[in-house]
C-alpha cells in the first residue's frame, strides 16, 4: 500500500517536474546571456494550447508539439525584439505577454473547443521501458513516462554541453557578464541574446506542449498555473547552473506532488502550505540564505553599443 503510493507519488512528482525542467533549462541559458523572460509562463501556455489544437486537428501529437514550439518561438522572437533591440523593460514586457497569453488562449479555447472540451486529444503513449521498471520503488515511476519526459533530461545535458564546451556557450556567458567587453572582443551581443531568448522559447514550448499533449491529453484554461514563474524561480534557486537548476525543478515537482500524497496518507498538513512551499524555498534561496549564488552581472540590463 505504502509502496504503491510512493510509486504514484514519484511518478507524479516527475511528471510535474518535466515542464519546469524544460522551461527552466532554456531560461537558464537565456539568463546567462542577460535576458530574463518573465514571459516564460505565457510561452508555455500558448504552446500548450497550440499543441493541443494541432494534435487534435491533425491527429498527430508530434505535429502538435512542433506547432506548440513554433508558437512559443514566435513569442520569444517578439520578446527578443522588445527586450534586446528596443531595450524595453524585460520584466514589464514579460508580464504583458503573460496577460496576453492567458487572454488569447482562454478566448480561443472557448471559441474553438467550447462545445467539445470533454474529448481527450491525441497524445503520446507511455514508453514503459522494461529495463528501468525492474529498479525497486522508483523503477515503475521512471519507466512509465512518455518519450518527451526523457527528452527533458537530454536537453539539460545538451544545454550544459553548449554552455561549457561550445563557442556559442562562451559567447552567452561573456554577453551576460560583461556585454561591453564581449562587444569589443567582436561578439555580437544582440545576436547572442536573440539566440538565447529563442532557445528559451523552444524549450518553454516543449514544456508547454508536454503539459497538454503528453501529460494530460487535454487543454484547460490557464493550465500552466504559474509553472513558468516556478521555472524562473528554479533557475535562481539553481544558481544559474544546469544541474542545480535540474535539482531545483525536481524539488518543485515533488513539492507540488506532495499535495496529492499527503491527503492519501491521511496526514493533517494543510494543502495550502504545500502549495506555497516551492515559492517560500525560492524566496529563501534568492535572499541568499542558502549558499551564495550570483546572478549574471548584466541580467535584465539592455545593452546599447558605444553608449
Amino acid at each position: 500500500m505504502i509502496d504503491e503510493q510512493m510509486a504514484v507519488f514519484i511518478g507524479s512528482g516527475l511528471r510535474l517536474a518535466v515542464p519546469i525542467i524544460f522551461a527552466a533549462t532554456g531560461e537558464m541559458l537565456s539568463e546567462r546571456a542577460g535576458v530574463l523572460n518573465l514571459s516564460l509562463d505565457g510561452m508555455m501556455l500558448m504552446s500548450a494550447f497550440t499543441a493541443a489544437l494541432a494534435s487534435w486537428a491533425t491527429g498527430s501529437p508530434l505535429l502538435g508539439v512542433a506547432a506548440g514550439v513554433l508558437v512559443a518561438m514566435a513569442v520569444a522572437a517578439v520578446q527578443a525584439v522588445l527586450s534586446v533591440t528596443l531595450r524595453a523593460n524585460q520584466l514589464v514586457v514579460g508580464i504583458g505577454f503573460n496577460i496576453l497569453a492567458l487572454g488569447s488562449t482562454t478566448f480561443l479555447y472557448r471559441e474553438i473547443f467550447g462545445p467539445l472540451s470533454r474529448d481527450p486529444i491525441p497524445g503520446f503513449a507511455q514508453l514503459n521501458l522494461p529495463w528501468l521498471a525492474h529498479i525497486p520503488v522508483i523503477g515503475p515511476a521512471l519507466a512509465n513516462q512518455t518519450g518527451l519526459a526523457y527528452v527533458s533530461i537530454l536537453m539539460v545535458v545538451v544545454t550544459w554541453l553548449i554552455l561549457k564546451y561550445t563557442s556559442f556557450g562562451l559567447a552567452v556567458r561573456a554577453v551576460g557578464e560583461d556585454p561591453r567587453a564581449a562587444d569589443k572582443a567582436g561578439i555580437s551581443v544582440a545576436k547572442t541574446r536573440y539566440l538565447g531568448v529563442l532557445y528559451a522559447g523552444i524549450l518553454a514550448g516543449l514544456g508547454g506542449a508536454f503539459m497538454s499533449v503528453a501529460d494530460s491529453n487535454t487543454f484547460t484554461e490557464n493550465m500552466t498555473k504559474g509553472a513558468g514563474y516556478l521555472a524562473i524561480t528554479a533557475v535562481i534557486f539553481g544558481g544559474w547552473n544546469p544541474w542545480y537548476t535540474l535539482a531545483a525543478c525536481l524539488l518543485f515537482g515533488f513539492a507540488t506532488a506532495l499535495q496529492f500524497l499527503v491527503p492519501a496518507l491521511q496526514l493533517d498538513v494543510p494543502v495550502a502550505l504545500l502549495l506555497l512551499l516551492p515559492y517560500l524555498l525560492a524566496l529563501v534561496a534568492i535572499a541568499g540564505f542558502v549558499g551564495k549564488s550570483r546572478q549574471p552581472s548584466a541580467l535584465t540590463i539592455p545593452f546599447e553599443r558605444g553608449g
Binding site: V78, L82, V92, V93, I95, G96, F97, N98, I99, L100, A101, L102, G103, S104, T106, F107, R110, E111
Partner: peptide, 14 residues
C-alpha cells in the same frame, strides 16, 4: 468571452 479584455490589456502593456 471577457478574455478579449485580457488580450487588450496584454497588448497595452507590451
Amino acid at each position: 468571452p471577457s478574455a478579449v479584455v485580457l488580450i487588450c490589456q496584454g497588448l497595452i502593456v507590451i
